[in-house]
Design a protein around this nucleic acid. Structure first.
Lengths: 138, 138
DNA sequence: TTACATGTAATTATTTTAGTTACAGAATTT
DNA sequence: AAATTCTGTAACTAAAATAATTACATGTAA
């Protein structure tokens, strides 16, 4: 199971996008997400590093640096997910066994394709889509 | 990151498929995977429950109950992955906040689509494909 | 019956993820 | 300018997920 950092990050960005006039503090955002403000600040740090938003140290509030329709879920996912590969593999299969010797490179091809399919789908959806659905659900 | 149970399970099934005459013990398989025999027996238990192989208690060896070309990576994944949803979400976002109130159902739609894309890809690849590539790599 | 295997529960260890504390430093307020 | 409030980040703790191990009842077979 994949961690909840993408979910929380989308939540953060949706809050920022829907409150363009207000300078939302990490405390306020944490209240909506229901977590600790430091968790929010850490994720905002990653999103800033990825160029999705900008902040001023010591000053509350963050600003999106792109239009919501230009921010895909894939960008957000990549911003907050340090691991490059989606699937883990067992380390050190027995090299003396023909299967053990080649299983990693073989699986790697399949896993790469599966990951690409996932990421392609995440790449088609934008923050703007999320915002539309949020409004419509409301 | 997704756990390594799919990787180990494919390894197990590939061993069984490439040794149709030999009754492979969990000890032997564990030696190729490089893990504990109990880990192997547990995964084999899940694969048996999913109808992918059969065993006889107390007797070493397992037999595939389908042709390798009829066993997809998706079947294997589902057999050993108890969780239905791929992405985690933060629990209990603030219902008093318009974003917090609807973020889960909104994200759920995106996450479901992404998961379906992943699973569709896993569904196209079979154990037979893995076996072909194993041989070719060798 | 002895030897060896599976199946599975229970426990422990390791790793990952999330939450918390602490605090330096920037911005703002009074 | 001092006090207040906030961010950014390191360090630490807690919780959860994952993997490894121990233990043993039970099945198989020589």
């Amino acid at each position: 199971m994949i961690n909840s950092r993408l979910a929380v990050s989308v939540h953060i960005l949706a809050l920022i996008a829907t409150h363009p006039d207000q300078a939302l503090s990490s405390d306020y955002i944490a209240g909506s997400v229901n977590t600790n403000p430091v968790v929010i600040r850490r994720l905002i740090g990653s999103l800033r590093q990825a160029g999705l938003l900008s902040t001023v140290a010591g000053k509350s509030g963050a600003t999106l640096t792109k239009d919501p329709q230009d921010i895909t879920l894939l960008m957000i996912y990549r911003a907050v997910e340090p691991k490059e590969t989606l699937f883990s593999m067992h380390e050190q299969p027995n090299p003396a066994c023909p299967v053990g010797r080649d299983i990693q490179s073989t699986l790697n091809q399949s896993f790469t394709r599966a990951q690409q399919a996932l990421e392609a789908e995440l790449g088609t959806e934008t923050l703007a889509d999320i915002l539309h659905r949020l409004v419509r659900t409301r």
